[in-house]
Design a protein around this nucleic acid. Sequence first.
RNA 1: CGGGCUGUGGCGCAGCUUGGUAGCGCGCUUGCUUUGGGAGCAAGAGGCCGUCGGUUCGAAUCCGACCAGCCCGACCA
Length: 572
Amino acid sequence: MRWSEAFIPTLRDAPADAEAVSHVLLVRGGFIRQLAAGSYTILPLGQRVRLKVANIIREEMNAIGGQEMMPPTLHPAEIWRKSGRYELMGENLYKLVDRKGADLVLGMTEEEIFAITAMELSSYRDMPQIWYQVHTKFRDEARPKSGLLRVREFTMKDAYTLDIDRAGLDAGFEKHRGAYQRIFARMGLDALGVEASSGAMGGSESVEFMVRSDAGEDWIVTCSNCDYRANVERAISAVGEVDDGDPADLDRFPTPGLRTIKALAEAHPDVATPERQIKTLVYVLDGEQVLVLLRGDHDLQEQKLLDATAAVEARAATPEEIRPLLGADPGSLGAVGVNGPRIIADEALRGRSNLVTGANEDDWHHSGVAVGRDIEVSLWADVREVHSGEPCPLCGGELELWKGIEVGHIFKLGTKYSETFGVYVQDEKGDSHPIIMGSYGIGVERGMAAVVETFHDDKGIIWPVSVAPYEVVITVVRADDQPTLDAAERLYTELDAAGVEVLLDDREERPGVKFADAELIGIPYRVTVGPRGVEQGIVELTTRRDLVTEETAIDGVVARLSEAIYVQRHGA
RNA sequence: CGGGCUGUGGCGCAGCUUGGUAGCGCGCUUGCUUUGGGAGCAAGAGGCCGUCGGUUCGAAUCCGACCAGCCCGACCA
């Protein structure tokens, strides 16, 4: 491609409303333009990257036996009502009505559609199957943000495994784990597979692939000593033992004006250190008011609460809801003697005694509280959020927290969708079994953005060869100098013939503009052709990653570049 | 959905307090000069000032409603 004929609208100034590095650089480099919140036009340069990412995904999916197909994105609402997700997905699901008044839905993930397609299968002999698509998904995000990182319309590779038994699912899951590791590695990404919550997908087990980045929206817990890694929505840590002393009798004491764990601990350091208090939270789970108990120095992880109770929506109750329920305001709440709402207690409170908690009367607290004796717990669960520095649950090493971008997520779904849609196959004895499904997603554009978040400097993007829009840019220093232009054209033709993707910067611009643009759009190799060098049969070769330049004979440059690129093209 | 901020040529911004012919930088067009790290001079093109309504002789500017976008939070397969 000749730059003079290409549509590569680079910008000198960053758009005012872009914050994330990938957002700024993709807009400035002429890869994308915003149409509306969370809605982008992918420009020619962006499309080349997007197709390369999609092709890497396709190659690795095909390599594990995946078969690409193309279901519709527009679905009858009936299907989603049947799976229960018409309601479950809430406002994130785009809902529309056609001319006949029929309700329709735009697909945001497609377990339902693939389950229905799987009704064609009837025998264990048909198993296993790996089906996938690379297609548009729609999500009415409450808050699209950060350019391509969180949008309302995007391309997702979603794959589904169909097996007759658990062992088949496990095998399919492991195949995908491997494929995903290869896909992200080929994109240059260091994506770590971490334990995750399955959320609204349902299912038993899931692994997210996270790329470390401050632009990410998830917090990840990793051990500095062993391989333990998990999303905070799922992560656990070893809790230190607390010496409660001998169990005491339940008692009350006045605590005027002491409304926080900290204030109470400072006023009564002998009995009420934070780890010897019970934190009582009132939550509303799908409309049901519940008490959630935690150790005083611990915090609630809401997703854990949802997972433990199979609830869909959790929110903190308001003071107006709490007073009629418990008879006191936040600051003096407790679960002693409460029997009405369900009481969900964190595992860290199990077996504890001699504790302090609110007495459900303003300005009074209980002391000597023994959890089993004085509080009737309805459900024990791990609902505590792990904090940085706590001991690893596996090895005791120090846990670290970091922010990550979720570039992929794989789920063991089980039979939820096959049972709903009646997808059964017969085994060798003729018995029917619901198909066991797995579901596996990668966000294509988010992956592109994650690459930019990972590889950039103050001059612009640094694409890995495997996903670069072009592999080489030939910068013609003097486009008006005929020998220079001739030499550049010859290189352009030869590189093209050698199968290298090359962009010829033949624009009548000053060199500084061309260098700056080449660096901004992140082409891995730059060949600089200028009058001085051409006279001596020499060009300059610059690598984008380290911006190191060396002079080299024109004659050898094509062979050299095609070799270097060939080995990098399929990923690091 | 709650909180904060912003809407003025393609991009970045000023003008609004105190109403009176819409401005600057970059980019774009043409010409000349220049040419190894975002050139100089000259002449140009390009704007329903987010939308609707109100106040006024007169509104980018004042008032109201709405819409859109960004950031924080809630939410998020």
